[in-house]
Design a protein around this nucleic acid. Structure first.
Lengths: 208, 208
DNA sequence: GGCGGATTCTATAACTCTATAGAATTGTGG
DNA sequence: CCACAATTCTATAGAGTTATAGAATCCGCC
């Protein structure tokens, strides 16, 4: 019965190439700035041929965004569940957040910039995932404060937003900053978040 | 000779309203996602009437972006030239960077997201301004390190990028985070950057 | 070698968007 | 109240975009 000419793995690989091209084009020009013609050009096929692989441009964005988020929540949840001290967890969270920017930069970039353009249903779905992710990180910080492993007067909400903003920005310049590997960035960012840029002894907190 | 019917101030005010509308629409939907029709709808006028105020949609983006950057370099240069200690300068830089997000959020938002869509010449101009801004901040950090006011082993380049990323992200959620005024955000972010989130004594640097 | 599904192509409908041309309207200073 | 510049309008050209229909081609397998 199954008379498949091209093998299923072959077909899946081709489908992945199509989405790769879409991700690359969306990442470079933005969803609205990119045309399906641009995607076809990258692949060397005709614009209409794309519609064999996805039913609409929006559906392509959805696939790209889905690959852009995948793994974040799981990785963070695993880190949060570990029994390392909070500072070490923060280190792991930073690295876990930055690593996908090396491994699937275009996908993450599109997700971060254009997820709000998704159709209602999937937008709400990724919205929920994002909020869950934020809450995991914030939870790690709050637990750290309770355990006395992090500063007692920390505003965990703002610290979470700061951490995410700092890391997310990397997607815009990673690859253009010479010498900045993901590991180096992660280490430096973690150190910065944990200890700050002021020297060890000097704490100019309660006004000198 | 000058027979102006509507006074010049009146005309300038109207022109500002037009650009305000463009900024609001670009900020909400992105440059490519927004149509000139959308801008006209906000103003309650016809799409073609906009072209009395700007010669092209691109020119409107240019005006919005220009107002989005204006002041950043000047403010940072003034802070850098002051004689406060480096940590205090960092505090001022953070506040100076965040304040425009309260006072002209749509403009800053459009600038941050869509400046790379500008036509070549103006893109290069704002590119130069951005680089100058980054260099001022990085210069403050480097001077602080040399003066012993900041940690000696700091990577000033990455710290600069971290600081900017952290602050820039605020434009996406400021106004949606209840209770987060610009002053509170600035204070918290400055504290975070300077001292980190780890408690005062605990420095887990040279592995516990 | 040729069958049949998988893949790509041609052609085009239907729509949206920017921008221009020129007419109509508005409102103020003389 | 009128002349005239400033402002807005109607109408539309022209280019580009998404998506569909159906034909053509490809290719592993019998």
């Amino acid at each position: 019965m199954p008379v498949a000419t091209r093998s299923a793995p072959q077909a899946r690989r081709r489908a992945a190439e199509i989405i790769d091209a879409a991700a690359a084009v969306f990442a470079e020009r933005g969803y609205h700035g990119a045309s399906t013609q641009d995607i076809a050009d990258v692949l060397g096929i005709r614009q209409a041929s794309l519609y064999y692989y996805f039913p609409s441009k929006e559906a392509a964005l959805e696939q790209v965004c889905m690959r852009g988020v995948e793994g974040f929540v799981e990785q963070a949840a695993a880190t949060a569940a570990g029994d390392e001290p909070a500072p070490e967890k923060v280190r792991l969270l930073v690295l876990g957040h930055l690593a996908p920017m090396r491994d699937r930069q275009p996908y993450v970039r599109v997700f971060l910039r254009d997820r709000h353009l998704l159709p209602d249903e999937s937008r709400r779905r990724v919205g929920r995932a994002s909020r869950r992710y934020e809450r995991i990180i914030q939870g790690v910080l709050e637990a750290g404060v309770r355990a006395g492993e992090l500063r007692a007067d920390l505003d965990c909400r703002l610290a979470t937003l700061a951490l995410l903003g700092m890391c997310n920005a990397a997607v815009t310049w990673y690859g253009a900053e010479p010498g900045a590997t993901i590991e180096r960035i992660a280490e430096e960012f973690a150190m910065l978040v944990l200890d700050g840029i002021a020297p060890r002894g000097a704490r100019r907190r309660g006004r000198s």
